[in-house]
Each structure stands twice: as C-alpha cells, then as structure tokens.
Design a protein around this nucleic acid. Sequence first.
DNA 1: GAGGATTACGGATCCCGTAAGAATG
DNA 2: CATTCTTACGGGATCCGTAATCCTC
Lengths: 139, 139
Amino acid sequence: MELSWMKTFVTVAELGNFRKASEALYVSQPTVTVHIKSLEKELGVSLLERGKRFVRLTEEGRIYLKQARQLLELHQEGLKKIQSYAQGYRKSLKLAISPLIADTIMPFVLKKYLENHSEVEISVEIMESNQIDDAVMSE
Amino acid sequence: MELSWMKTFVTVAELGNFRKASEALYVSQPTVTVHIKSLEKELGVSLLERGKRFVRLTEEGRIYLKQARQLLELHQEGLKKIQSYAQGYRKSLKLAISPLIADTIMPFVLKKYLENHSEVEISVEIMESNQIDDAVMSE
DNA sequence: GAGGATTACGGATCCCGTAAGAATG
DNA sequence: CATTCTTACGGGATCCGTAATCCTC
C-alpha cells in the first residue's frame, strides 16, 4: 500500500477531476488513473464513480476519504515530529545516576543545566553503578 | 512511502532482530535490511542502531515507532471499515422528499421501515421535487 | 473538435531472493 | 564456524510518461 495513492485519491476527491488532480500533483493524467485503480484494487472496492462528464465519490469512497485524510495527516505529523527531533530539538532527558552522585554533585549540576535549558524535561533514576550499564543498553 | 516498510520496522523493533522479523513477515533477511534502509532514507534519520550483536532503537526510532504503530492501526481500521461496508452493512440512509410526501405517505412508510431495520440511522431532508435531482447528483 | 478519462506500450527503475561478504563471539 | 546483518547482482515486476483511443458535449 503506497501512501501516494491515498494522496492522489484525496486530491481527486477534493478537486472532483482527474486532470486537475494530475496538475496539482505534478504527474500525468494516466498516473492518476493508475493510482486510483491500484487503490481500488487493493481495497477491493470502487471509490469513485466515473460519470459521463464528472467524477463522484461512491459511498465507500466517502468513507475511505476520511480514513485516507486522517492517515496522511498522521503521517505528516510523524514526519514533522521526527525531523524536528533530528534537528536537535529535545524535550526530555533521562538520567541514571548512582546514589552518591545523586546526593552530592547532581543537584548542583542539574540546577545549572536547567537555568540554561528550561524547556528540557528531566527525569532522574537512581541506581547502582553496575546496573546503569544494563539499564542504558536496554534503554 | 510504503506501508510495508513501516510494518517491517515495527516488527524488527518488536522482535529486536532482523532475522526473526524476516521469518515473521515471510520475507528474506536482505529484504528486511532494504525496507529499513528505505524507511530511514525517506525519513532522513537513523531508526535503528546496529550494534555488534544486537539491534536497538535510536531515540528517533522510538519516536517513530509510536507513529508507525498508530498509522498501521489506523490503516487496519480503515480496511475493516471499508470492507464491512462493502459486504452490505449500512448504518445511515439519507432521504430527500418533497413536502407533500413528507406530510402524507412518508411517516407511515418510515415507521414500517424502522420496525424492521432498527439499526439504520435515517436522516430526512425535505425539498422540492425539482431540487432533489440536483441534490442527489451532488451527493 | 475540445475536454477529460482510459488503454497501450516502452524504457527506466525498483523489488525481492540467492549468493557472497563482513563482523562478532 | 555459527549467527546475524550488509552488499552485490540478476531477473522479473512495477511505475511513469507519451501516444493513441474512447466517449461525451
């Protein structure tokens, strides 16, 4: 299942016209036909009713349109999320430290850090040094 | 963007192992490698950290895993919804009728119908006969 | 004949599996 | 040398655009 098929379908549904959709998506008209057919074949239902001089959604098409929109939306969100993260944005930081450090150095270091990174959410777990290795490995 | 890549990724993440994933998905091991690489390339981030003797999610991977799961779930729901509909299940019925009918025949017919189809949700719109044609055409 | 969708078709690309390679323990 | 992931490679399928066809106005 190819997401671009859904995008094509949604575009056709919105523009009500294969040619306009092909222009909006910068592909040829036959490609639109093929995308729609592929989608219909994979779903096993007919999504668009090809009238004489118009294209209309079938009831199945109307139902699936909602789904496809949600899916594409979710996908876009995912892309955004993952890429903003990759660009360096962080919102949480997990720390595992030994009891000794936790009582002595850490409070001071943490205070300093948060002064400069107030947007970062920090969670601290206190455990023995020899457990930290495993904890990190197993995330 | 191919949904099967996400499926492969989720499977690898769950099984923590390319080979096991390949067996679970009934594909060869290289195919798993390729799917993951394709996904990583398209997202522009590294999802899995290939250790010497293990495979682990990167932070990006952890974030995207949630997304991918949601997306696949949504997709499954969509398939189910559309196919149960195609099998004949209906839950709503829209009617457009003229004022005269609405006052005379319709109430009786509707009552009868609902006695036998209690699961169907009906919405009635009253409009002039000559408008009904256009309304149906434009859905 | 203009406009819009489908079908036909050819070349480029992609996809998957097999085989070989690399790295680890 | 057993296990596991990656790279190489070849044949088949797929994908897209151009061109031709169909159909309606």
